[in-house]
């Protein structure tokens, strides 16, 4: 079995850490693995919303750390996928409520009960990030194909190296083949060349993603979603399977075809 405790981080906010955590965890749970997703973004919890479990939370990570309840009791069982559990973050506390050694202890207690434990890291490189990364066997860095995200991801990779973690893996999220073809967006090769990490996923921009998140339904549940398919592929790769990367084609609309026909740019 591949690494068990996986931290998903990025440095920059809004790149899709929680979305990828929720979707990859759901994809693995759908395959029959017991999966736990821990939201380490104390004070700014989102993972429960992406999974659609916001109304089922009773206890959270801070309750577990403070010894109010054991970790098993704070876990929220997913309503659709039976092997998926969420350990939510507290919304009323801040990052200082959980120290790296606290999360390491919680993860150690849960390690034997699950096949995979995902930790959704907060944005930034401060205490919260260090806490989220501390118990991880492996780190997945999520980057968008834009320079600001890449620079932050690069910083996070450097910090992981300094923390003596094994080399992180890379997921490129929100890539738009149309913009890449126009030269408005960096392509996959550009990002990999700068970050020089093992690529385990390329997730295309999906116009339905906002709707999925608002409805609390992970995209992997929908076979027609290209982003969902890309994230199911990430799950396969985490299991050690060789899955080819999706071909990112530019889909031509009727107007594009018409423009091409008349030779206008």
């Amino acid at each position: 079995m591949a690494d068990k405790v996986i931290c998903i981080t990025s440095g920059k906010g809004g790149v899709g850490k929680s979305t990828i955590t929720a979707n990859v965890a759901t994809a693995l749970a759908m395959k029959g693995y017991r999966v736990c997703a821990i939201d380490a973004d104390i004070g700014l919890r989102n993972l429960d919303l992406v999974l659609g479990l916001e109304n089922r939370i009773v206890y959270d990570l801070v309750h577990v750390v403070e010894g109010v309840v054991p970790p098993e009791k704070a876990l929220v069982k997913d309503k659709r996928t039976k092997n998926l559990f969420l350990l939510p973050a507290a919304q009323t506390k801040d990052k200082s409520a959980v120290k790296p050694e606290d999360l390491v202890r919680v993860v150690e207690e849960l390690r034997d009960k699950f096949d995979f434990i995902f930790i959704d890291s907060p944005a930034g490189i401060e205490e919260g990030f260090k806490t989220a990364v501390a118990p991880a066997d492996t780190v997945i860095v999520v980057a968008n194909p834009e320079m600001a995200s890449i620079r932050d991801a690069d910083r996070v990779i450097g910090l992981c190296e300094a923390m003596q973690k094994s080399e992180p893996k890379l997921v490129i999220n929100k890539i738009d083949p149309k913009k890449v073809a126009r030269g408005d967006m960096l392509d996959v090769d550009d990002v990999v060349q700068i970050l020089s990490l093992e690529l385990i996923g390329v997730v295309p921009e999906d116009k339905n993603m906002v709707a999925y998140i608002n409805r609390g339904e992970p995209a992997v549940l929908f076979p027609e979603s290209p982003a969902g398919k890309a994230m199911r592929n990430i799950a396969e790769r985490l299991l050690g399977k060789e899955v080819p990367f999706m071909e990112l084609k530019v889909q031509e609309g009727f107007l594009d075809k018409l423009k091409k026909l008349f030779g206008s740019e």
């Binding site: 890449i150 620079r151 690069d154 910083r155 990779i157 450097g158 700068i194 970050l195 020089s196």
Partner: peptide, 23 residues
């Protein structure tokens, strides 16, 4: 490879067998 946030100094010459990334 020097990643974003890394800083290397030398009183003399410096040879880097890798990349110097943005930042």
């Amino acid at each position: 490879t020097l990643r974003s946030g890394d800083k290397i100094t030398s009183t003399g010459d410096l040879v880097i067998m890798g990349d110097v990334n943005p930042g």
